[in-house]
Design a protein around this nucleic acid. Structure first.
Length: 934
RNA sequence: GCGGGGGUGGCCGAGUGGUCAAAGGCGACAGGCUCAGAACCUGUUGGCUUAGUGCCUUCGUGGGUUCAAAUCCCACCCCCCGCACCA
């Protein structure tokens, strides 16, 4: 019994020893494929397998077609996840330790080392490489590299890239809100927060400045709101009586604020905040504040629902349109405090309707509170739901009333921004960012929204740049084409991108080294680096400056001068230029769909900015996410499977087969069915045995059925070739594995002993067309049958005999007909008589087919042939028109033996005009009369 | 909300106007092979009906276009993904 793993090791050794995949610039046509370098914060898993294997399949396929193929692979370490994980480990977090030990198989003794972020790179890069090697990927490993400043050569390349972008004017500096830990002074991305708070983003709102007097001093009541347009409907202000409020000097004004995290947040949004004194809340409540727009005086009232950690901890009350505000007032009317009661009743009386909303009264908040039977402000869940419903209905459907003046009779979503801008220009409102829910970072501090004022941006909103990017996209092949719209949309909506961080791994921005270029931004044109990665190592990184890269990538200057000026070997310079010019542009990059709106779009932008058109990327292939046995992959579900584990368990060819079979290119999810592994192992071994046992056997003479099968193979080769080009690997397995095998079985069934030539053709061709997917076992087979697996090429198919395929379809059709009849008749028959329709009927059928093909209406045809019974019957069964053949009788005669085998009885074939059967006259073309004899 | 993808038989999944009761795989059932099992092979796998090649129902729901709709158009319902500083 053969052992797949031994075979895999053998061929991987042969490929390595013969340097089969190390490739250089030459005169041959080239094909350059890439797989986005994986981030090395762990072992590669099956998700990496499915996408990377597609690159591998296409690399091998293109080699069979005669291309000089470059498949190179680097690894990505830029960014913060590794830093964050190392930090968490240092903090003694068990989860991260457990993951390293249990999922990543790190030896417990080694855990200490992972407290140093650079050790992750040291450890996981070789592991990733090992996985790819054991899968048998055809990678030119001389060109391997990893990112960050730990690789000076790469860093120099990134520096060059950013100098180019700055030169073009695509880099800007400006303000940007971020989620921030004020204690550790760090941007808090998803990796820096507890899982429960992943994905929470800042919200953009407004502070509206009401005024009131406290101890004869003018104090601002900064009301935070998401709905500045409701300012006309304010009946009162809410503060939370259960907490401490203070007065602070905010820039030149005095603000009332809760003594909470919001002070820190305001401080971090470009304001000076100085806390002056505590406030006696009793002296604030029931005071009157002035609406800055309408100048109305409204009372300040207490409410428990006000969250003192969100926004400014003070809100304005619009009971007509905000359920919280309405119920807050209702609650107060039930208060024992007579004063509260009185004021609240007055406020309710003053409720002002601002919008017209179909299906609601003037006071939608009241409507919904009553409808949902909300009885107090403590029913938070219901109130959130009510608020959301009213808010979204009003936002999209309601019209503003007359009070809005120039903004009246419009929908809120149309005027909201403009209206807010107006308030800001009147200096009665300010933009303010806060969080929908206050939470702590991994460093155990409450986080806030901070405005960074010196952030560096890639200006993707630059129209000129966008135009270039769209032009680049338009000359690219997108597989499948359906994904092009995602690209167009993504390029269109990309705006300024803050491309630098602090405290992460990566390359420092060359002109402002405090900042590190973040990970999506240092991985946009690195495919160009593959072309020279093996050569550039020979140059001292210190010598790599703009001029050197200008020469390599843009052909500027000349090598002699640069060589002299910087002491760089001229030959290496020339060779790098040659490699780049030969391999670029990149022909195909394959990726999951998740990278369309970010990485792949960035790649397009940056190529379009830096390189001349002839070096713009040529193509992108897209596939969906990976499901494992129909379920999403996740560490917690326990179906996070490292590639190395899977190879150990199943072997490389089985994994590759499963990966191909997981799905076609597209936006839909792939599904890898691991429970098929055993079955596939059986398939592969069976196939191996079959080939070895049967190659060169068989009979010499060639009959019709042999020609038929030969043509079936040819047709499938053509189809499979096309599927490869479209990255539809599931279809390839379907056709090259299952369909071809089914046809072979059919062939075998009808011939007993196959023709030697055809059998050999089948064995050779099937191995070669599956070689890109399962190269180890097919190489082994090819070698065993005397071929040189290092020197194979795609089978050339000159001509397919369509006629013979058509006859087969016809026979299949007749067989299925007979089966139908036998189903009814039972199995005790002795003979089957097939009576073929006469020539005259065939001529009619052909004519009708022509007419239908040319677009004639069936109704018209029925009218036209109303006096012709045969024609009418044919028209009623347009199906048979697809099986028309010229020589029905002859074809049936040729297949007579086959039919006898199929039905295990005597078969007689007659012509209608020579038959005595009554049924003979019922025969139609492609639908002979069948007589069962018992 | 915006943008994108999708809803097909027990399951997975092809399929963009007539070759579609719908490929293929998986599963199930029956038969062959076998001491037996696995694998493999053959057949069946929506319902009804029949000395005949037919009828009915079915590709998310409801309408429409057409001689003809899983496929085209309209409306609706449901599911998945993205909406950024994060790889």
């Amino acid at each position: 019994m053969i052992n797949l793993k031994n075979i895999e090791e053998k061929w991987q050794r042969i490929w390595e020893e013969n340097k089969v995949f190390e490739t250089n610039a030459s005169n041959k046509p080239k094909f350059f494929v890439t797989f986005p370098y994986p981030y090395v914060n762990g072992l590669l898993h099956l998700g990496h397998l499915t996408t990377s294997s597609r690159v591998e399949f296409i690399a091998r396929f293109k080699r069979l077609l005669g291309y000089n193929v470059l498949f190179a692979q680097g690894f990505h370490a830029t960014g913060s996840p590794i830093i964050a994980a190392a930090y968490r480990l240092r903090e003694g977090e068990e989860k991260i330790k457990k993951e390293l030990i249990e999922l990543m198989h790190v030896n417990e003794k080694e855990i200490e080392k992972f407290k140093d972020p650079t050790y992750w790179i040291e450890y996981f890069v070789p592991k990733a490489k090992e996985a790819f090697k054991k899968l048998g990927y055809s990678i030119d490993w001389r060109r391997e590299f990893f990112t960050t400043s730990l690789n000076n050569h790469y860093s120099k390349f990134i520096e060059w890239q950013y100098f180019k972008l700055r030169e073009k004017g695509f880099i800007k500096r400006g303000k940007h809100p971020v989620i921030w830990d004020p204690k550790v002074k760090k941007v808090i991305g998803d990796h820096d927060r507890p899982d429960d708070f992943v994905g929470i983003d800042y919200i953009e709102g407004y502070i509206i400045k009401f005024k009131f007097y406290y101890k004869d001093k003018e104090i601002i009541l900064p009301c935070f709101t998401l709905r500045p347009e409701t300012i006309y409907g304010v009946t009162n202000i809410w503060i939370n009586p259960n907490y401490e409020y203070i007065i602070a000097k905010v820039n030149e004004e005095f603000w009332l604020l809760p003594n909470s995290i919001v002070i820190e947040e305001i401080k971090n949004q470009e304001k000076n905040v100085e806390v002056l004194e505590k406030v006696d809340i009793e002296n604030v409540i029931l005071n009157f504040a002035e609406n800055p727009l309408t100048k109305e005086k409204v009372p300040i009232l207490p409410a428990n629902f006000v969250d003192i950690e969100i926004g400014t901890g003070i809100v304005m009350s619009v009971p007509a349109h905000a359920p919280y505000d309405y119920i807050g007032l209702i609650d107060l009317t039930k208060s024992e405090n007579k004063k509260y009661k009185e004021v609240a009743e007055k406020c309710l009386k003053n409720m002002k309707s601002l919008f017209k909303l179909e299906g609601f009264s003037d006071f939608p908040a009241k409507d919904i509170v009553e409808k949902m039977k909300i009885s107090s402000q403590n029913e938070k869940e219901k109130l959130e739901k009510a608020t959301e419903e009213i808010y979204s209905k009003e936002f999209y459907n309601a019209f503003t009333k007359e009070i809005f003046g120039e903004f009246s009779n419009r929908k809120i979503y149309e005027i909201k921004n403009e209206f807010a801008e107006k308030l800001i220009s009147l200096t009665i409102a300010e933009k303010h960012y806060t969080l929908p829910i206050r939470f702590e970072s991994r460093y155990k501090n409450k986080v806030i929204v901070k405005i960074l004022s010196d952030q560096w941006f890639l200006d993707y909103s630059n129209e000129e740049w966008k135009k270039l990017a769209l032009e680049c996209l338009s000359q690219m092949k997108i597989i499948p084409e359906i994904a092009r719209r995602n690209f167009e949309n993504s390029i269109k909506i990309l705006r300024e991108w803050a491309f630098t961080h602090k405290e992460s791994l990566g390359t420092p921005l060359p002109w402002d080294k405090e900042w590190i270029i973040e990970s999506l931004s240092d991985s946009t044109i690195y495919m160009a680096y593959y072309t020279i990665a093996h050569l550039i190592k020979n140059i001292d990184a210190e010598k790599l400056n703009e001029e050197v890269f200008d020469f390599i990538f843009l052909g500027r200057g000349n090598s002699k001068e640069i060589s002299k000026k910087y002491g760089i070997d001229e030959k290496i310079l020339e060779e790098m230029r040659k490699e780049f010019v030969y391999w670029y542009p990149m022909d195909l990059r394959i990726s999951g769909k998740d990278l369309i709106p970010n990485h792949l779009s960035f790649m397009i932008f940056h190529h379009a900015a830096i390189f001349p058109k002839e070096y713009w990327p040529k193509g992108v292939g897209i596939n969906g996410f990976l499901l494992i046995n129909g379920e999403k992959m996740s560490k917690s579900k326990g179906n996070f499977i490292p590639i190395l584990d899977a190879i150990e368990k199943y072997s490389a060819d089985i994994l590759r087969f499963l990966s191909a079979y997981a799905g076609n290119s597209g936006l839909e999810d792939l599904n890898i069915e691991l429970n098929l592994a055993e079955k596939i192992e059986g398939y592969l071994k069976e196939w191996y045995n079959f080939c070895i046992e049967n190659y060169n056997k068989g009979r010499e003479e060639k009959e019709i059925i042999d020609f038929w099968f030969e043509n079936v193979i040819k047709k499938i080769v053509k189809e499979v070739e096309n599927e490869y080009e479209n990255l539809n690997f599931k279809n390839i397995i379907q056709k090259a594995w299952f369909e071809l095998e089914n046809k072979f079985n059919k062939y075998l069934y009808s011939v007993n002993i196959p023709n030697r030539e055809v059998l050999n053709y089948y064995i050779e061709v099937r191995n070669i067309i599956l070689y890109p997917i399962i190269p180890h076992i097919t190489s082994e087979i090819l070698e065993k049958i005397g071929k040189d697996p290092l020197n194979i090429s795609w089978p050339k198919v000159e001509k397919i005999d369509e006629g013979i395929l058509k006859s087969e379809e016809y026979i299949e059709f007749v067989i299925s007909d007979i089966r139908e009849i036998l189903k009814i008749k039972g199995t005790n028959y002795k003979e089957i008589k097939i009576i073929v329709a006469n020539r005259e009927k065939l001529e009619i059928a052909k004519k009708i087919k022509e007419e239908i093909d040319s677009g004639k209406n069936l109704n018209e045809l029925i009218k036209k042939y109303s006096d012709n019974d045969v024609a009418k019957r044919i028209i009623k069964k347009p199906k048979i028109l697809n099986y028309l053949v010229e020589e029905e009788f002859e074809i049936l005669s040729q297949y007579k033996e086959f039919l006898e085998k199929v039905f295990k009885c005597k078969i007689t074939i007659e012509k209608e005009e020579e038959s005595n059967e009554i049924k003979a006259k019922d025969s139609l073309p492609a639908k002979p009369s069948i007589v069962i004899i018992f």
